[in-house]
Design a protein around this nucleic acid. Structure first.
Length: 811
RNA sequence: GCGGAUGUGGCGAAACUGGCAGACGCGCAGGUUUCAGGUUCCUGUGGGAGACCAUGCAGGUUCAAGUCCUGUCAUCCGCACCA
């Protein structure tokens, strides 16, 4: 077969007949939205990762189409983002130019892959017609109170004089100039994802997602149930601490505020001023990575002030220490060194008292004792333990008016401002009189200007573009400035799956009716690296849009599958520095896109991935040759004769239906390697039958080859279209129904049983399937090998597993 | 430290609710086709001469364990001072 020719032939035909298009007007067939994570056009070419994501998933989509679903499988480009901008900084090529060029090449390659993408619904996030609606999303969230501005610490490179994304901080240093990164407070836009923390957590239970991904999200959201307790300072200031161990409140010997805590300076006495200032400065210098290391020695400083433990009335000193995170809980903790490892280490270092208030129920109490135990400190709660003690003490604190039970989440609000050029401008205008004013919807998009100095030299690139920055306030009409920041690219990808449903709508991001009909996505396939970012943000967007009345479902992705990673032949991750990058292009050129895809499906467990091997693809080429030979043979058959089925015909028909059944099951389960294995078995069965001497049932043979082609079609689309045509099939093979198994053909007259005596296999025999357990027992008892072994002994027990084995227990 | 996985022939990998471990393929061996090499097609292929031994290791439950339980080692991934 001339691979190149037939690939082109069928791709053109599919395009001409609009075979890959989703038909929204079709109400007969059930819709099925199959989605692969869209491509990021940072490089010019598709790599194996793209292929591995899109090839097998397309086969799944085609399989479902043949099963009678109205399948929607769109594709697009996540086109904004840092790599294009960094590339531009390095080479001087404008991000718009390089990105559009990359998209063009990748589109061509994606089409050459032969996937049934519905290109009529393509989206590119860097185009005005798309980011206009990304900006619209921002405005809706703002209206709903879900977008707000606040001062927050960011990674700051003092040399480049710019903010860095976390990914740009390598070992605490700026990735470009190696300058140590410091933390700095800047006013930034946030999305209030924390409002949805509880629903994002509980919604996970309804999803058909990998357990690992769900548990990662649960972890990320980090729900904890505890208690807030208010401490009052000698000067009258009050602050709250958060604890999950309020049963230890009698053991508090000091409290700690995060260095960024608003009361930090206020509570500092004149004698401590210098030490505290020095410490706050030190803490702000250390970066996130250093600071979060649990192995680092604890540091801190005394403020000079004291506060009162509301439960005991005792005065305790107030410290600042950077092991307390300002962003979690209340940014302040009560320290109980006897029952917390961190507090213990800190107290030991700074000579603070350690007071034991909990006793170990199961032995000696060795400090720090951090497990649950019995309260034992001369309090009214002595004798209580664990949950019960915490409940009663929290109630007591609430009764004192000093706090009470409180649920906390680790999830933080989503910082969406980026001091970067290549993204969607934040649609806000800053007016001296009116403050931050959202851009009126009718003025969208806020266009990203092309002529901008995007090399970083101190300010947001857009801030240096006067044409962009200078505008008038939509409220009062006085001169005003635009927000110079752009949106995190994860904002763009948080709603693209909705836009696909109505990709060319000029009046709205999408039509509600269309979206409600097509969504949610039935099967979403992509890399596991997005477990906590994209997949969480997209869920948040869906829930927020639902609450604003724009759509009517709770979760965007019903079923989620992560493909594995294809490694280099040496077992390492492919990378230029390893020199182990395998490019799909040469293989596609030599063996064709079908063979390449089929190898990706056969050679790996889909969710595991593994090292690339050249041998495997040759095996696939051979398999396709074998199929082609069968097709040619079947196509050449003249008068199709039929005969009364012999054992051989029955065996072939069994193999055929066994194949149909298992290929269907395996494709559904994304178990592509076993699906292909079943196809090979069926092929082998056809060869076996064909090799027999004597008269053949040519009709059966022909029908079996036809079924083989239909079963293989989703996984080798061009090849099977060609085979289908050779077999005299009409139209596209993808308009044919996927074969359905004839269960009657799978019922055998007899089955092979393993016969065991005392759990050891003695022999294997065929036993009619009509036999009852009793009959089976009698039957095997008479077999000579068995009779010999049980002679003179009593059969105590006989276990029969129908269709599989018999185990006689004798003694 | 916490959470999640993974560990099976020479290799990639199969094995449904516990029920014949190693499907399918690669590789290898023998035959076949071919002037010859490759190709094709067929057969064999976990180890061991053998009773037997084999799913990282050590125990346990069971008539029966790759699968369940306890402990342990190794590797990978995610989170990591979350009070």
């Amino acid at each position: 077969m001339d691979i190149k020719k037939i690939e082109k032939k069928w791709q053109e035909k599919w395009e001409k007949d609009k075979l890959n298009r989703f038909d929204p007007s079709d109400t007969e067939r059930k819709k099925l939205y199959v989605l692969e994570m869209f491509s990021y056009p940072s490089g010019a070419k598709l790599h194996i990762g793209h292929w591995y994501n899109y090839g097998p998933t397309d086969s799944y989509a085609r399989f479902k189409r043949m099963q009678g679903y109205n399948v929607f499988q769109p594709m697009g480009f996540d086109a904004f983002g840092l790599p294009a901008e960094n590339y531009a900084i390095k080479t001087g090529i404008h991000p718009m130019d390089s990105t559009l060029k990359n998209i063009e090449t990748m589109e061509g390659q994606l089409r050459a892959m032969g996937a049934m993408f519905d290109w009529s619904a393509e989206v590119k996030t860097c185009t005005e017609e798309y980011y206009q609606w990304t900006q619209w999303m921002f405005l809706q969230l703002y209206k709903k109170g879900l977008a707000y501005r606040k001062e927050a610490p960011v990674n700051w490179c003092p040399s480049c004089n710019t903010v860095l994304a976390n990914e740009q901080v390598v070992d605490g240093k700026c990735e470009r100039c190696d300058t140590p990164v410091v933390r700095r407070n800047l006013t930034q836009w946030f999305f209030k994802i924390t409002d949805y923390a509880e629903e994002l957590l509980s919604g996970l239970d309804t999803l058909d997602w990998p357990e690992k991904t769900k548990s990662m999200q649960r972890n990320w959201i980090g729900k904890s149930t505890g208690c807030e307790i208010e401490f009052e300072c000698d000067g009258g200031e009050k602050f709250k601490v958060y604890t999950t161990r309020c049963d230890t409140v009698y053991g508090v010997t000091y409290v700690v505020l995060a260095p960024e805590h608003p009361l930090a300076r206020k509570l500092t006495t004149p004698e401590q001023r210098d030490a505290v200032e020095a410490y706050i400065d030190y803490a702000s210098r250390s970066n996130e990575i250093e600071r979060l290391s649990s192995t680092r020695e604890k540091t801190g400083v005394f403020t000079g002030s004291y506060c009162t433990n509301p439960v005991t009335g005792k005065k305790v000193p107030i410290y600042l220490a950077d092991y307390v995170l300002y962003s979690y809980g209340t940014g302040a903790v009560m320290a109980v060194p006897a029952h917390d490892e961190r507090d213990f280490a800190f107290a030991t270092k700074y000579g603070l008292p350690i007071v034991k208030v909990i006793e170990n129920r199961n032995g000696e109490t060795v400090l720090p004792f951090t497990e649950d135990g019995i309260v034992s400190c001369g309090s009214p709660f002595d004798g209580l333990a664990g949950e019960e003690a915490r409940g009663k003490i929290a109630d007591h604190i609430a009764a004192l008016g000093k706090g009470g039970k409180k649920v906390n989440y680790r999830l933080r609000d989503w910082l969406v401002s980026r001091q970067r050029y290549w993204g969607a401008p934040i649609p806000v205008i800053h007016c001296e009189k009116c403050g931050a004013v959202p851009v009126p919807e009718k003025d969208l998009p806020v266009k990203l200007p092309y002529d901008v100095e995007f090399r970083p030299d101190g300010k947001s690139p857009l801030a240096k573009c006067d044409k962009f920055m200078n505008t008038v306030c939509p409220k009062c009409g006085s001169p005003a400035k635009r927000d110079p920041d752009t949106l995190d690219t994860f904002v763009c990808s948080s709603w693209y799956y909705l836009r696909y449903a109505d990709a060319h709508n000029g009046n709205a991001p999408f039509d509600r009716e269309k979206v409600d009909k097509l969504l949610p996505v039935d099967v979403y396939v992509g890399g596991a690296e997005h477990s906590c970012m994209h997949l969480l943000y997209a869920r948040f967007f869906t829930k927020a849009l639902r609450d604003m009345g724009y759509l009517d479902f709770d979760e965007p992705f019903k079923r989620l599958v992560h493909q594995g990673v294809i490694l280099g032949p040496d077992g390492n991750r492919m990378s230029k520095s390893h020199g182990n990058v395998v490019s799909p292009d040469e293989y596609v050129k030599e063996y064709g896109s079908d063979a390449f895809r089929l190898y990706l499906m056969f050679g790996f467990s889909y969710t595991e991935g593994g090292p690339w091997s050249d041998d495997g693809i040759k095996a696939i080429a051979r398999f396709m040759d074998r199929v082609e030979k069968l097709v040619n043979k079947a196509a050449a058959l003249g008068d199709l004769t039929k005969k009364t089925p012999s054992e051989e015909e029955k065996a072939l028909n069994y193999a055929r239906n066994f194949g149909i059944l298992h290929v269907s099951e395996d494709m559904e389960a994304f178990s592509f390697n076993t699906a292909v294995a079943r196809l090979m078995e069926f092929t082998n069965a056809l060869y076996k039958y064909d090799g027999l001497s004597g008269e053949k049932d040519l009709k059966l043979f022909h029908d079996c080859v036809k079924d083989l082609v239909l079963l293989l079609a989703p996984s080798a689309p061009h090849f099977c279209e060609e085979c289908w045509e050779r077999l005299g099939g009409k139209g596209s093979v993808f308009e044919q129904p996927f074969p359905k198994a004839d269960h009657a053909a799978l019922v055998l007259d007899e089955k092979e049983y393993a016969v065991q005596v005392n759990s050891k296999i003695v022999c294997r025999v065929k036993i009619p399937t009509s036999y009852s357990e009793k009959e089976i027992e009698e039957y095997v008892g008479k077999l000579p090998e068995i009779a010999e072994r049980i002679a003179g002994k009593t059969v105590r027990k006989c276990i029969v597993v129908l269709g599989r084995l018999v185990n006689l227990i004798v003694g």
